[in-house]
Write a protein that binds this DNA or RNA. Sequence first.
RNA 1: GCCCCUGUGGCGCAGCCUGGUUAGCGCACCGGACUUUUAAUCCGUUGGUCGUGAGUUCGAAUCUCACCGGGGGCACCA
Length: 482
Amino acid sequence: MVQKCDHFSEEPMTDNIPYTFHPTAVSDDLQKRFGDIEDGTETAEVATIAGRLMLRRVQGKLAFGTLQDSGGRIQLFAPGKVTPNFAEFCELSLGDWIGVTGTVMKTKRGELSVKVESWELLAQAQRPFPDKFHGLNDPDTRYRQRYVDLWVTPESRATFVLRSRVISLIRRWLEDREFMEVETPMLHPIPGGATARPFTTHHNAFDQEFFLRIAPELYLKRLVAGGFERVFEIGRVFRNEGISTRHNPEFTMLELYQAYADYEEIMTLTEELVSYLATELCGSTTLQYGEREIDLSTPWRRASMTELINEQIGADLSVETNIDELRSIAKQHGVEVKDSYGPGKLILEIYEKTTEAELWGPVFVTDYPKEVSPLSRDHRSQPEMTERFETIIAGRELANAFSELIDPVEQRARFEDQVKQKDAGDDEAMVVDEDYLRAMEYGLPPTGGLGIGIDRLVMLLADASTIRDVVLFPTLRPEASS
RNA sequence: GCCCCUGUGGCGCAGCCUGGUUAGCGCACCGGACUUUUAAUCCGUUGGUCGUGAGUUCGAAUCUCACCGGGGGCACCA
């Protein structure tokens, strides 16, 4: 059992805790407004603030505290003669929640403070807070007990504030461009819209298996067929796959669809959106990421997949390269070649093995083989290719987009090819979605679509090396019950 | 799935290689001193089956093995 503070009690302990409290100020706002006043002077301002007591310096008949609230920290100044229940104030534990009212003033040593003229206990910390200087260092504890981490790891709090702003700014930016936010099902009768293994669940009333969505894509395109010309959704998707610094089983996707647009226009939209976010949130289109810089100033490089592979490995391959030669190149680079792989799949494998991680970017990798792009429209000039791109930044995929496939006959053929791949043992391959085909048969206009992994975007903007640092409650093995 | 690293009171760490008296230190907590501190300071306490189990040994936090948790890498994927 964990150690608790001595005042831990099994008895009800909130009898004297008020039901409401109304702060009139936040620490950083007070710092901004009164940070410049003369040392040792008082203002005419009386402020009410609330938060946790994070530090405490009791000196007999005078006590100092450091209160942390949503804005940051501010000192509490508590002279015994002024502060009511002074002894109890001095006995507060680090981590206790209190509300304080008093004059905003500055001590002789120049620390802006609130003089504790009245105060109330709002919650006791029954468990001891982490080391007041070192905080939490164990990542496991930080992720499992985020409620503590957010208090003692300022970067962690800042990251999640940033994440919230990212999503908020994306919404506004898209709405300003006439995009409409929609919500589509998370429970899918058949999984679709991506190649990934789904989670399954069960609906009792229908006695029916459902899948947690792996992508909202097919529903969003139904809406374009339905006449919503510009739609977007920001929401959770679920993929039943491994966990790593770049993968969490549930993650947040932005998907948007714009009728009458092609992938070139989506590239422009993507670079404008991401560079806008960087400017707004980081103050610049140049970001520090780990040891290196990322220059997000537009326009971003656009280069085809085969072009980039050839640059990287000094070859001269294309989708028309003889398949035996492609197989041999793939093997040379350590790709595990399966008999079912056609030229397109081989090219993608070679790209992922040799090139993707080496691209610092930002770069739009364009023109993906048809074989690996079952929802993308045929390239207008390149045979066996589709008008698809992925955006690579820092060696990682940030976005995936295409000129959407709008031909229902072709779509059916692509689905059936996926079914063949599934039968051949690829359990991530797609299945036929008859209703989606029906929607296409009513007519889907030329459409450009985009998916951006919000978590990875936040990683870039927050300079986070692991996705767990940008997900409030990352998926972890459940704690063993003792 | 494979490889490497790691697990010592609530938190941050030392001790482990080179096994040996009651396992240390700092913070928190508890008691005491202190009216301008800033991780306040000073004095004194409380609290630990050293992740779990087995083995080697006269003796294991320390060496060996297995298992469990966590981190990183590879594979796979977004």
